[in-house]
Nucleic acid binder design. Structure first.
Lengths: 191, 191
DNA sequence: AACACAAACTAACAATTGTTAGTTTGCTCC
DNA sequence: GGAGCAAACTAACAATTGTTAGTTTGTGTT
């Protein structure tokens, strides 16, 4: 690890993400979170400012990670199949090192309040880039002529569900999972 | 329609499903639900017995619909590709005629309390049948040699997300969507 | 020994939660 | 016009919610 040791605040956020994953943001109380940390609810507020900002910090960090990853993929000059594989790799990587956070992003983004518009903007941008990769691939005859919306929906559905699946498998090989998914998601559309 | 006109209880459950879809079970209050119905919260209890049973009725009905549909597919003697298409059709059909309920099933099943074990049993059964269809297809050389778990996960992820996608499209042709999905989900694994 | 400071604590708050009890309203049928 | 009944209402409850204020504890530094 290159990061220094976890601060108390980071620890709270990490534990919160785990609880959010199991019961959802709304069903987790500050007393639940405190109990899991082994302290009283009021003590949490020495480190964080509100329940709401915990959710924001979890989700926005991941959303920006996706945005940055997609930007790098768009910026490079790989072909379509290669880019689709990079997108799969991006999702697998993030899902493996922050499955709990991803759960919150997928299930509780609608409770973001302040940061909701910003989140939706990032997501819209991400999907728009994804779609342009697919469209370019179709135009260039690199992939089959398939309804681009349905294709993106199908791929994204699988990739967004990764967090549900990864914890079930023991030590997963990131490379291996990436390849297995590429096979299933891409082989069928490859020309 | 073959069913008689909706009872007040059914109307409450339908409206509840819509609210659950938007905010999640825990975030919807009985006062929210009452307001949407144009009445006071206490009045709801003339028709339903608790918030919890509303959730149960929504989810269990759908889960049993899936169970029954899968049983019919298992019982018939179609080949593997045909059966996979039938499974896709089953999901599309249910998603189209009860998108809101499906949202609750997918997002709020963990709040089922009493009925949680029963739900998990139905789901386990469903997935076990799904997997056996895939495994038989591999054994008989009807589909490619792919990791069966990854394949089922990928297909189920897409099918389970249908409810998110269907409302966006205007009047969707059930047949059409079924076929487009079959193309994407099956063409790649067909031999 | 005194200080500084992070991090825990106790006590309390105002608001919101699901739900119950008992009452009123309005329609239908004799 | 009165009986029956579904479906709304008002009022209230005990519990739980996120959060604040002020205080204590413990550890390391001067």
């Amino acid at each position: 690890m290159s990061t220094k040791t976890e601060t108390r605040k980071e620890e709270i956020i990490r534990v919160a993400a785990k609880l959010f994953k199991d019961k959802g943001y709304s069903a987790v109380t500050m007393r639940d979170l405190a109990a899991e940390m082994g302290i009283k609810a009021a003590s949490l507020y020495n480190h964080i400012t509100s329940k709401q900002t915990i959710l924001q910090e979890i989700i926005i960090a991941i959303a920006e990670e996706f945005t940055q990853g997609m930007n790098e993929i768009i910026r490079n000059d790989a072909n379509t199949i290669e880019r689709l594989k990079q997108i799969i790799g991006l999702h697998v990587r993030i899902a493996i090192d922050n499955a709990d956070g991803l759960a919150a992003l997928n299930s509780d983004w609608m409770h973001l309040e302040n940061k909701l518009d910003y989140y939706l903007e990032l997501r819209q941008n991400y999907e728009s880039n994804f779609l342009s990769v697919i469209n370019k691939g179709i135009d260039n005859n690199e992939i089959k002529q398939i309804n681009p919306d349905v294709l993106m929906f199908s791929m994204l559905s699988t990739l967004r569900s990764l967090y549900l699946w990864i914890p079930k498998k023991g030590a997963i090989n990131q490379e291996e999972l990436s390849n297995a998914l590429s096979l299933i998601l891409i082989e069928g559309i490859n020309i």
